[in-house]
Structures are given as structure tokens and as C-alpha cells.
Amino acid sequence: MKKIFTSSIGKKLVMGFTGVFLISFLIVHCYINALVFLPNGIEKYLAAGHFMGTNFIVRTMEVGLMAGIILHIVQGLMLTVQNRSKRPVAYNVAPGNKSSKWYSRSMGLLGTLILLFLVLHLTHFWMPNRYEQHFGTGHEINLYEKMELVFQNPWIVLVYVLGCISLAWHLIHGFWSAFQTLGLYTPKYAALIKGIGMAFSIIVPLIFIAMPVAFHFGWLPPSSSYVPAH
């Protein structure tokens, strides 16, 4: 077992495992976001948010998620740098797009863009929320109201849209690539995996984009329209 996660293939196994783990997180995150578009969306959304923010099991998994993201980022950036160092003298005429897709060669760059977005995103919602819970009022903040406020700013909406587009390209390569790395991209399932991967990589980021855009243009009911029943 000594080298299973440190050899050239091992490093990719780390990327694959953490990548799939992050994909599973996206499914949950995306599902909860989509709740705001349903009837009684505010109530449904806040209830789901409350569960995610207070349930012991979810909060424990949150630690795992953080570790997974950090591992994915650190390993991803190291891999990018190490792989680049394997060609000390560059080609004068580079192969370019003749033999591979630009986004498959740009996973480090796309990941870095996602990371920049992620930092901003966490400071908008996750950090103030946890701060209030543990060091402030002891209660969660109203994330719906918070979003309404944050997404007034068109520049922030733009950054969110660009972040989600980066995620889409990252996943269009990353989804099937993870299955290939983990040895699961067999001929029998190849077309299915590519198909699901493509659909996932487009639909999920679109749902993410829909939220800040809808808030910005006032397409969602105002938070003041919802009065919690006590």
C-alpha cells in the first residue's frame, strides 16, 4: 500500500476520489439551491439550510468536505506544477488544440478560478453563518435574506456566473476523467458516463447561476414576504 497514493497513478487516484466526493457534494448543494424556485421556496430552502447547518452528522461530514477540498486543491496544484516540470525545454510549435481539448489541458487554471470564486463565496455565506452560530447570536443567519442583499451587486453576480462557468468546464473534463482514473470507464459504460457527465456539467452550474441572477433581477419573492410560523 506504500505508494498507492504517492506514485504518479496514486496522485491521480487522490484527485479522482476527492473529485467524485466534491461532485457528490455539488448534488446536495444544487438540490437545496433549487428549492428556492419551488412554491413556498423560502420556507423549504431555510428548512433545508437549517438541517444542513445544525445536524450533527452533516456538520461532521462538513469537516470531511473541507479536508477533501483542501486535498484536491493542494494535490491538484502540485500535480500541475510537477507535470509541467517534466518538459524542461518547450516546443517552439506547441500541439495546441489539434490533439486535445483546451479545457482538458487547463484543469489547473480552471481549478484556480473555481478556488478564487470559492474563497469569495465562503466569505459571503458560510463564514458569517458559522460565526454567528458559534461566536455571535448562537443562531444561524437568514441566508435567503443575505443572498438577496449580496446579489444586489452586479459585479458579485458576474463573479458568481464566471465561477460557475469555470466549474462547468472543469467538470466536462473532470467527470469522465475521474472514472477513467479510478479504472471504471469501461467500454460498456463509457458512453453512459460521458453522457451523464456532460449533462451534469451543464445542468448543475446552470442551476447555480440561476440563483444569483434571479435574486439580482428580483424574480424571486422578497424575504419579507415570508413570516415563519411559530
Binding site: 505508494k3 506514485s7 504518479s8 497513478i9 496522485k11 491521480k12 500535480l79 510537477q82 507535470n83 517534466k86 500541439p95 489539434k98 490533439s99 486535445s100 481539448k101 482538458s104 489541458r105 484543469m107 473534463h173 469522465w176 476523467s177 477513467q180 482514473t181
Partner: peptide, 24 residues
């Protein structure tokens, strides 16, 4: 195991599934 080990010692990079190899 031994062949991957040797490949790493020789200084080849990790595969990121770009598919350029297959195309060329």
C-alpha cells in the same frame, strides 16, 4: 507495480486524460 515505479523514476509525468497521446 514495478513498471509504474520505473516510469516514475525515469521522470515521466502523471496522466490527466487529455487524450493527446491517443490522437497522435
Amino acid at each position: 507495480v514495478n513498471m509504474v515505479d520505473q516510469m516514475d523514476k525515469e521522470g515521466f509525468g502523471s496522466c490527466t486524460n487529455t487524450g493527446a497521446c491517443e490522437a497522435e
